[in-house]
Design a protein around this nucleic acid. Structure first.
Lengths: 342, 342
DNA sequence: AATAGTTTTGCAAATGTTTTCATAAATTTC
DNA sequence: GAAATTTATGAAAACATTTGCAAAACTATT
């Protein structure tokens, strides 16, 4: 039976109930093998009777790990980040860590503030999303000497260990694919890039790749569209309704591409016969939409998992070695939303 | 400039650097108005120089709030939960709280374990998803006297305050709508229900509503499909390819309905002419898919926001009043994936 | 039965903060 | 310019734990 009134049950309450000292109760949790089986049993029952729950805060001030990891993402509203976080969380939970989660909404100032809050909580490690962060963020990280990994993006020579895909490469791959299909009249739809190095890198490389082949994207065909199916549908519909329209549209992510697909349908265009549409990401659902989306896969689950593994390793390895960077290859996924220009 | 080596910077380090006592530094943070401006300035500079970051763990053992809230969800992989969590997180972050997030994957045993872990971290409050939980969970919550709200579902007479929509009502609304369109040959597609009271309630009420009007769903038309567009597409395709098929399909959520929409297209069926398809949830994208999905809106953002507001209120109100339950109305959203049977 | 060795336990100090109480400093009042 | 207030600061206790050290309780050995 639990106590009738839940007054301050601390380690001393348990100690009294078990007729041992506080130290013994502490050992019961931390080094049970040092205890006599009989004592162990007595404490066991006392813990149960009192409903005692250990206080990690009190442990933490002894330099013992807090068992928490701070996870800092732009937003959960993008399915792809939710997926990464889920994989990360599952991985570290297995090792007994709990995550502190916060999103900054692409506001670098806010990211710094959140990081500070994480550090106040004495997280054992942090994960940030993407490679680009305020300089103050990097300084803080350096100074506190806390294990950290940047996830989602990968680039060699990053200031901190990073685990993710090479977004530039992803952009190049999809652009090259569209070119290889014979398209020359190409439109682009990318999300706004402020505070978002991933989107920026992708757009730049796509434009560059096209340019290298002598294809330039006219302003009227270069759309900036927020991450939203309805917005991208509307924008695509507008673009597709012009008399002078591209034969292919490269979208910065699969959500935009999905909207564009709907927009094409609304405009009475057939995909891929009248227009080819491609995305980047290979989100859940991209393979099932009609027509199935041609895209580049960024392995979100794998990234989250690897990032979790690496960070946990860096935390529990006593020699404080930094986590290693890891490159998760993007892969071109050929489906049915793009085809060769006749 | 920050210290060259980041050796244990605690409140005493700062105190020494500012030539004051530890108490004064503490006051600098907690009651700055009690300090002489000159002292304040001196400490300010010392904090900056040393790179000091307060240790919440040390504060927490004084009975001061930890500033954390535990959020326990089934999974982030369902967009709708990600949305709720995002809204919740934004709301409580504004008041200075950070969330501890964990998912149990519909495993009640695991939910209990996670709750215990949250309590070890001395969270100031917890949010659980749904109304149904292991009895041990409720007991623990009672015993620890910690503010708690159940979010997502609402039902009067719930054991704990709950903030969410009435899932039974949502199910009834969509079933009644389909009936009102004149359909009698109706199929159902619902997710597996173990550990998932929301899905269970929805299915039961849908079946009951149909039955009340003399419509029964044959086993062959009653599909159990995991939350996945590909699975639901495949299952729907199979169902739609039978010679004897329903004229309407009620799906347990919009993801299943989306898959069913794709399945219909793959089967060569026209929606809504050949078959009406409806969902529950009104997820992002449901309004933009072609044809736009007829569904019942469960206001995820609002629920997350209200749950956050209520929980924070319960935490900061010293008189420890429980949060109030709140019912967020589901609303029927008429779009183009369902129409009257000719 | 005494000794040496081992296992089990308790005491007290330490952890990084906040807070109460007391004292020192500054300000006001006469 | 002294007394009476008010304001600002410091010393020490408190918080819930862990841990090094030493004492106590066993076991094994003779």
């Amino acid at each position: 039976m639990a106590e009738t009134k839940a007054k301050k049950v601390d380690i001393l309450t348990v100690a009294k109930a078990a007729r041992v000292s506080a130290s013994t109760v502490s050992r019961y949790f931390n080094h049970p093998d040092l205890l006599k089986p009989a004592t162990r049993k007595r404490i066991d029952s006392a813990v149960r009777r009192t409903g005692y729950i250990r206080n990690r805060a009190a442990q933490t001030i002894h330099g013992i790990r807090s068992g928490t990891i701070g996870v800092l993402i732009p937003t959960l509203d993008h399915a792809i980040f939710a997926e990464v976080v889920q994989a990360f969380s599952d991985t570290v939970a297995e090792k007994g860590f709990t995550i502190l989660l916060a999103s900054h909404g692409y506001d670098l100032q806010r990211e710094y503030a959140i990081l500070r809050k994480f550090l106040e909580h004495r997280v054992d490690g942090v994960v940030l999303t993407g490679l680009d962060h305020d300089d103050a963020v990097f300084q803080l990280l350096d100074q506190q000497e806390i294990p950290c990994v940047l996830m989602w993006n990968h680039a060699t020579g990053s200031r901190f260990p990073c685990i993710g895909a090479d977004n530039e490469k992803a952009g190049r791959m999809i652009a090259e694919h569209v070119l290889s299909l014979g398209h020359r009249r190409i439109g682009c739809m990318f999300p706004p890039t402020e505070g978002n190095d991933r989107a920026l890198a992708r757009r730049d490389i796509v434009l560059q790749t096209l340019k290298n082949e002598g294809v330039s994207v006219p302003d009227a065909w270069s759309l900036t569209t927020v991450y939203s199916i309805s917005e991208s549908k509307a924008d695509a519909l507008r673009l597709f309704s012009e008399p002078d329209r591209p034969t292919a549209l490269i979208c910065g992510n699969d959500i935009l591409a999905t909207g564009a697909l709907y927009g094409a349908k609304a405009a009475g265009l057939l995909v891929p016969d009248d227009i080819s549409i491609v995305g980047i990401g290979d989100f859940k659902g991209s393979s099932d939409i009609e027509p199935a989306l041609t895209t580049v896969r960024l392995p979100a689950k794998r990234i989250g998992h690897e990032a979790g593994k690496a960070l946990v390793a860096a935390i529990v390895e006593q020699d404080g070695c930094d986590p290693c960077s890891l490159h998760c290859e993007p892969t071109l996924i050929l489906r049915h939303s793009a085809k060769a220009k006749q």
